[in-house]
Write a protein that binds this DNA or RNA. Sequence first.
DNA 1: GCAATACTTGCATGATGACGCAAGTAACCA
DNA 2: TGGTTACTTGCGTCATCATGCAAGTATTGC
Lengths: 143, 143
Amino acid sequence: MMTQVTKRSNPAPKAPRSPKQAARRRAAVDKLLDPDLFKAFADPTRVKLLTCLIKCGRRCSVTEVAECCSVDFSVVARHLALLAGVGALEATKEGRTMWYAPRCNDLSHRLRALADAIDEWCGSACEQNCGCEGEHGDSCGCA
Amino acid sequence: MMTQVTKRSNPAPKAPRSPKQAARRRAAVDKLLDPDLFKAFADPTRVKLLTCLIKCGRRCSVTEVAECCSVDFSVVARHLALLAGVGALEATKEGRTMWYAPRCNDLSHRLRALADAIDEWCGSACEQNCGCEGEHGDSCGCA
DNA sequence: GCAATACTTGCATGATGACGCAAGTAACCA
DNA sequence: TGGTTACTTGCGTCATCATGCAAGTATTGC
């Protein structure tokens, strides 16, 4: 397991008054919360293949990965290609075999960046949702 | 932005020889890479509503959130209920209005836990994928 | 060359899901 | 009590997608 030490270097952004205003704001969370990436993680079979590759700790061919799943070989091949398409896997073709390896460092980095982007807005209003709309910031007595 | 300090307290698990063996292993990543959670993040409209709430920094009613989206009101209500169902939002009913607030702390915590779980297996084999199947560990000359 | 291996692609099918409309329910107000 | 507000639920429709089968392509070994 990991030990996490997080430190806020910037103050939280001032919260908009309405969700309509909030939607117009540009923020890191907009790009990091990418539906296309998470769509790849939305299917149980695909997730099984991905975790299988992560736990295997080495690159694997489609044939190898297909052995740990009851679905058709073509389905596995398509799933792995899709995961590579969103950057979750690295694909390398050698002769007739296709090697897939999880891009662990990139994946965990993207997840932590998203967590940071969410935290950036966290606390921009009273955590107890007192309704002061964040005007009072951390000094609001309702917290 | 955040400053991250990560420290590995446990050695990386020994990589299985085959993906079939890897699939049988129980690991933290199995539970954290939950398709049901990420299915909620797989739809652009739903992500738009979620980021809107995150950036707003306070709890909002369904009517408010619906203003920043062009889809039907019932669609917004259903999306928010679904996001609350997977724990991304906190729902509070007061009279006839339904308040939704992002569970920022829980969200970022889950994302970091997943990143940690992935990192746990990262480096259990040669990063350059030399094919030694992780037997050599960090001492493998191919890296 | 020929066969086997490893993967890709096309196609049909069934399931899931996003959406809008309309009706229903529950709370609030006059 | 009757109307308005705020949300929920049911239903039909359309689009997307996961799956399996079959055919195709490309590479390797004999």
